[in-house]
């Protein structure tokens, strides 16, 4: 065993150390999501992890097919949401090809033949990947998401924030890092912390502990505005 291996890794393997075992399983199912859109689109090998989306999202077609076959209701919800959120898209339809690959066909209101997923924009694929991630029938106990705002339409941030919240309500804890005022505008006071670099170390501040932010929020403010106007003390670049 390598010298840097933590005791929890060893102890956690033994059935009789129940707490260590549970703790190890908890940590091992933490999940970090940092999508790479080019990896997520197009045709893939038909093998690999297919029940959970991977960190980079490259197994998106496999997970989509798994949902399509094993959880058709969830899959239909995802497709309906896509149709709402991508401008100009009337419907999204899955089509299982002969070689087992699940192609998504986007029906644009003004075209007769639908587009295949490899021709739609990065933002569209990313939205689909988030919906697949967040409708996971077995949520991760801790889901970390890196700057979900990239490539997405700013107005969709409110829906996305709501989606993260629903995931948390289903049992997973969600940690999102963001630089999006629109995302911040859509979340609640209790949900926000910010990081401050101080003497080479990073401090975490809770928004609800800040009297000024709390007062403004009680009067119906939004934290995206407060952040941009400099009320998140220490967060701004000098």
């Amino acid at each position: 065993m390598a010298p840097e291996t933590l005791a929890i890794k060893g102890l956690g393997q033994f059935e009789r150390f129940k707490a260590a075992n549970a703790f190890r399983r908890l940590i091992e199912s933490w999940h970090v999501s940092d999508f790479h859109i080019s990896a997520a689109r197009g045709r893939k090998e038909a093998t690999g992890e297919s029940e959970h989306l991977s960190q980079t999202g490259e197994n998106l077609p496999l997970v989509a097919r798994f949902l399509f076959e094993a959880h058709p209701k969830t899959f239909q919800t995802i497709l309906d949401k896509m149709a709402h959120r991508v401008p100009g898209i009337a419907s999204v339809e899955p089509k299982l090809m002969d070689d087992g690959y699940l192609a998504l066909r986007f029906q644009d209101g003004s075209f007769k033949t639908p587009f295949l997923d490899r021709y739609v924009s990065d933002g569209t694929i990313k939205m689909f990947a988030y919906l697949v991630l967040l409708h996971d029938p077995r949520p991760h106990p801790l889901l970390c998401v890196e700057e979900p705002e990239n490539q997405l339409y700013p107005k969709l941030m409110a829906e996305l924030a709501e989606e993260f919240r629903l995931y948390a309500l289903r049992g997973g804890q969600v940690l999102v890092s963001t630089h999006s005022p629109d995302f911040l505008n859509a979340v609640a006071l209790d949900e926000v912390c910010w990081l401050v670099k101080k003497d080479g170390a990073t401090e975490i501040r809770r928004a609800r502990d800040d009297e000024q932010i709390k007062t403004y929020m009680a009067d119906g403010d939004q934290m995206g505005f407060l952040w941009k106007q400099g009320f998140f003390t220490g967060a701004d670049p000098e």
Binding site: Q212, T215, D219, G220, D221, Q229
Partner: peptide, 11 residues
């Protein structure tokens, strides 16, 4: 749009 709220709620 925002100045009234900023002044009013200033801690």
């Amino acid at each position: 749009r925002q100045m009234v709220r900023r002044i009013k709620g200033y801690a």
